[in-house]
Nucleic acid binder design. Structure first.
Length: 486
RNA sequence: GUCCCCAUCGUCUAGAGGCCUAGGACAUUGCCUUUUCACGGCAGUAACCGGGGUUCGACUCCCCGUGGGGACGCCA
């Protein structure tokens, strides 16, 4: 359809950590670029020298990298292009498309407040519009000489035709009196410079679009296509912000969400493909389309995010999970556990844990006590056997028998664990059931204390029968001994 | 206040005039399964904002109302 090469961009301002809404905007741009074999670019909008901070730029870039959305060309920093913007603005002044304004901020502010008081739309009074101030009349700001009549309209790829009466639009400031350009101006200058073909952004920018269209015309530059995405809302249905939800991408990473889970959740906020809920990155790239993007806002629903996280956890590669655990969750492990994270034992446990946990933090919490070699302190006060001393003695007798049987299978240390000795899940099952029959116990009588001591975790998720064959025999026997002594 | 946008279960959504007795997913309720927790399986509760048109026929198209959101900065 459109033969123009697709070039899209994500243009965050480094005034805070990467916002989760920004991630979705970046994602939709990224998907669109990949699908059309186009370029996904990043531009740092740091013209607000007061609030922009380098650490936020670093945060944004590292978060995007974590999510797998890197730029296809060098990053453009607006703060490095200040003279360019000033030159272009002065040129527009000379062409009569903009003008110098010597009104002070205080004057403009006072006028605005008066208009609000009078119940009118707060707009600049255009005091300097026809004064033709010279370049020497410093300090001055440069304002757009916006047409007074007619209408400015554009066709949004998601919403269709949107039109604004020009009389409602302000002579907005392009260059501040300190020489620093403003957002609405630099956006257009840079989108032209970067040859952006599609501007895909949040719908809070719809009202900026007519101002920007004026600038494209003033610069005699071809206009890109616009697509305005619906907002992501908090539980209160208002624009998602720190007040009504967790907005920092880092927070989700720290909580243990897999990046692909976060992306999958975000892509479904405002976009759908029939009844499909789960998508891999490849599927998203293949199936994404702007036509199926929703027009109304979407509430950020943490429960569903968690469910999606669990689904992706099941599918993740075990080796990769270990790597992420080492990199991002090392604090969740004891020194010993951390050192055995690279072992075959650790890797063998992962598949048994994957269906049971949703977050990497949970995975770490489950794994840590299993990898520890010593005996983990556990609180056994809730065990049922505490209610009946005779029963407790009988259970311990059975467990002691079990230990002896396991020991003989291990052949005095010839095998590192029960699996190596030929005892698998089914083997554990039959051995335990046989013991229960012999001692007149129910399976649960035996497994409850055994599970607590062997896992070393008050609410271990892994199946005991899965764990027993895999855990190094040294650990199993030590923990069974601890159980017998309790 | 002015301008712009929007409106299907609690939430994310399917629905492009008859396929709708409105489908799926999350959450929720009940049951089953079960070595704790969980997973899983089965079943259930739950929605087209209101009013006018257009049409043989509107969840779907148009208008009005109502409601919600966004924007009105020398922030981005």
């Amino acid at each position: 359809m459109n033969s123009l090469p697709v070039r899209v961009r994500f243009a965050p301002s480094p005034t805070g950590f990467l916002h989760i809404g920004g991630v979705r905007t970046a994602l939709f741009n990224f998907l669109y670029a990949r699908q059309h074999q186009g370029k996904f670019l990043i531009r740092i909008e740091d013209t607000d020298t007061e609030r922009s901070e380098q650490r936020f730029t670093h945060d944004i870039m590292s978060s995007l990298q974590w999510l797998g959305m890197g730029a296809d060309e060098p990053i453009l920093y607006q703060s490095k292009r200040l003279p360019v913007y000033q030159g272009i603005a002065e040129d527009l002044v000379s062409k009569g498309l903009a003008y110098r304004c010597t009104c002070t901020e205080a004057e403009v502010e006072a006028a605005r407040e008066q208009l609000i008081k009078d119940g009118k739309k707060p707009m600049y009074a255009r005091t300097c519009r026809e004064k033709n101030h010279a370049a020497g009349d410093r300090p001055y700001a440069i304002r757009a000489k916006f047409p007074l009549s007619g209408a400015t309209s554009f066709t949004d790829l998601i919403r269709g035709e949107i039109s604004f009466p020009n009389e409602d639009l302000d002579d907005f400031v392009m260059i501040r009196s300190n020489g620093v350009p403003t957002y609405n101006f630099v956006v257009v200058v840079d989108d032209v410079e970067m040859k952006i073909s599609h501007v895909i952004r949040g719908d809070d920018h719809i009202n900026n679009t007519p101002k920007q269209i004026f600038l494209y015309d003033a610069l005699r530059a071809p206009k890109p296509l616009f697509a305005h995405l619906p907002m992501i809302l908090g539980q209160d249905k208002k624009k998602l912000s720190k007040r009504n939800g967790e907005t920092s991408t880092n927070a989700y990473r720290e909580q243990g969400y897999l990046p692909e889970a976060l992306l999958n959740f975000l892509v479904r906020l405002g976009w759908s493909h029939g009844d499909q809920e789960l998508f891999t990155m490849e599927e998203m790239i293949k199936l994404f389309n702007l036509e199926s993007v929703q027009v109304s806002g979407a509430v950020f629903n943490t429960e569903k995010l968690l469910w999606i996280a669990g689904e992706h956890m099941k599918k993740a590669d075990p080796g990769r999970l270990i790597r992420i655990l080492k990199q991002d969750f090392s604090k969740a492990f004891s020194e010993v556990s951390l050192s055995s994270l690279d072992s075959g034992y650790a890797l063998s446990l992962i598949p048994h844990l994957q269906p049971k946990v949703k977050l990497l933090s949970e995975l770490a919490g489950q794994l840590d006590p299993l990898l520890d070699t010593g005996v983990r302190e556990v609180d056994s006060s809730a065990l049922k056997w505490n209610k009946d001393e005779a029963q407790k003695a009988r259970i311990k007798e059975a467990i002691a028998g079990l230990r002896t049987e396991f020991q003989s299978r291990i052949s005095g240390g010839a095998f590192e664990n029960l699996r190596a000795a030929g005892v698998d899940h089914a083997g554990i099952d039959s051995i335990l059931r046989a013991k229960c029959d012999r001692f007149g116990l129910k399976l649960g009588d035996l497994t409850q204390p055994l599970r607590l001591f062997v896992t070393g975790h008050p609410s271990a998720s892994i199946g005991l029968f899965d764990l027993l064959p895999l855990m190094p025999w040294n650990s199993v026997s030590a923990r069974m001994d601890a159980c017998l002594k309790s």
